[in-house]
């Protein structure tokens, strides 16, 4: 493969200290010796069961936490976690939240304001856009969150199980927008519990187990292996 690297992890390890008493701390290893790279334009899947370190890995990739061992190279790329409802304030209207949330996801204020109509149209909130978010149903809230998040611009987009929000109609729409992003030149890291989704969308995948890299390779092959191991 001669394509350009987007991200490169070299022996990344993460450990949390858990305070047990005043002086005693217990070390809790979440990731150890993770080495892989992501090339520009590819979609990489992350397989693994609950508690295997997927969320922690995404935080490392997003630059939210720094590795304790090893390092990560970004090659000047911006990496962002697709986050729903980041920094929502229940007392504020959908409109106000859409502005702050979009700014938190890296937009300028002017851009955040310019995209408001589009966000409202996509979220299908209508007049409720001017009402406080505390009056929203869980579905409306999720729709608003998704509509803001999907506008996010980043060189590498990290997606964690957000393919199914809202009712059936919205789910379909959301899915197609995400698929458009994934199938474009966008570099994506996708975490999903659905092995089928992974096979369909990803070229390559990695498999995490108890914080270790258990496998890395072509998505179809690795997913098959994963499926056989857990008899899915």
């Amino acid at each position: 493969m001669s394509r350009e690297f987007a991200l490169k992890l070299n022996g990344v390890g993460i450990e949390y200290l858990q305070r047990q008493s005043f002086f005693r701390h217990k070390k809790h290893r979440v990731l150890s010796n993770i080495t892989f790279n992501i090339t520009k334009g590819e979609t990489l899947g992350v397989l693994g069961r609950n508690g295997c370190g997927k969320s922690t890995l995404l935080k490392v990739l997003a630059g939210i936490i720094a590795p304790d061992q090893g390092n990560i190279e970004f090659f000047g790329n911006s990496v962002s976690l697709l986050t729903l409802a980041a920094g929502f304030d229940n007392e504020l209207s959908g409109r106000d939240n859409a502005i702050v949330s979009a700014m938190l996801l890296g937009n300028t204020k002017a851009d955040a304001i310019a995209q408001l109509d589009e966000v409202n149209e996509f979220a299908e909130l209508g007049g409720a856009f001017e009402e406080p978010v505390k009056t929203y149903s869980a579905g409306m809230r999720a729709r608003l969150g998704f509509s803001i998040a999907v506008k996010m611009q980043a060189d590498v987009l990290l997606i964690d199980e957000v393919l199914g929000v809202g009712d059936e109609g919205f789910k379909k729409k959301a899915r197609s927008v995400i698929l458009d992003r994934i199938n474009s030149e966008q570099t994506v890291v996708l975490v999903s519990h659905s092995v089928d989704t992974m096979v369909n969308l990803c070229q390559r995948a990695i498999w995490l187990e108890r914080g270790q890299l258990k496998g890395i390779g072509e998505a179809a092959t690795l997913c098959e292996e994963y499926r056989n191991t857990f008899k899915l």
């Binding site: 304030d89 007392e91 106000d96 502005i99 700014m103 300028t108 204020k109």
Partner: peptide
């Protein structure tokens, strides 16, 4: 996040927080 974006975000958040607080 550029420093300009940071200031914009901070100011926006301050005024919206005040608005939220008042609405309570």
């Amino acid at each position: 996040m550029t420093s300009n974006q940071f200031f914009q975000l901070t100011i926006t958040k301050v005024f919206l927080n005040l608005k939220a607080e008042a609405s309570k």
